[in-house]
Design a protein around this nucleic acid. Structure first.
Length: 104
DNA sequence: AAACTGACTAATA
DNA sequence: CTATTAGCCAGTT
């Protein structure tokens, strides 16, 4: 993907702005990017991410404070690993405290 | 051009 | 707690 999709560009911009040790929900990113209600589009944007540019995609979780399942089952563990390394704590059910870690 | 497919969410039952 | 419904949009077939 490239600049053709201005939507994606703005979404990535917001994701890149999430500070370490914090997380944001898809809906939150969409809203901050200027697309309220387009939470799904945020997920699609990340799914289309090649890996070229630096992007902390792991800091984006769903509204339940959980890592959304995707094609690769192992990537879920990778994501939680990255977040734990930043100080995020998951409970026994694999859920994190949004009230505490959510990026305002 | 039409149909399918997904890293989502909030509301309702 | 699970299931269903409806909004949303871009890339692929």
């Amino acid at each position: 993907m490239d600049q053709r999709s201005s939507r994606y560009a703005r979404i990535f911009s917001v994701v890149r702005a999430i500070p370490p040790g914090r997380v944001a929900t898809y809906g939150q990113v969409a809203e901050m990017a200027g697309y309220p209600g387009h939470a799904r589009q945020v997920g699609y944007a990340l799914a289309a991410y090649d890996g070229d540019e630096a992007l902390p995609w792991q800091r984006v979780v769903n509204a339940q404070g959980r890592v959304s399942p995707r094609a690769e089952p192992e990537s879920e563990e990778i994501q939680r690993n990255l977040l734990r390394a930043e100080g995020i704590v998951f409970d026994s059910t694999g859920r994190l405290d949004l009230e505490r870690f959510r990026w305002a």
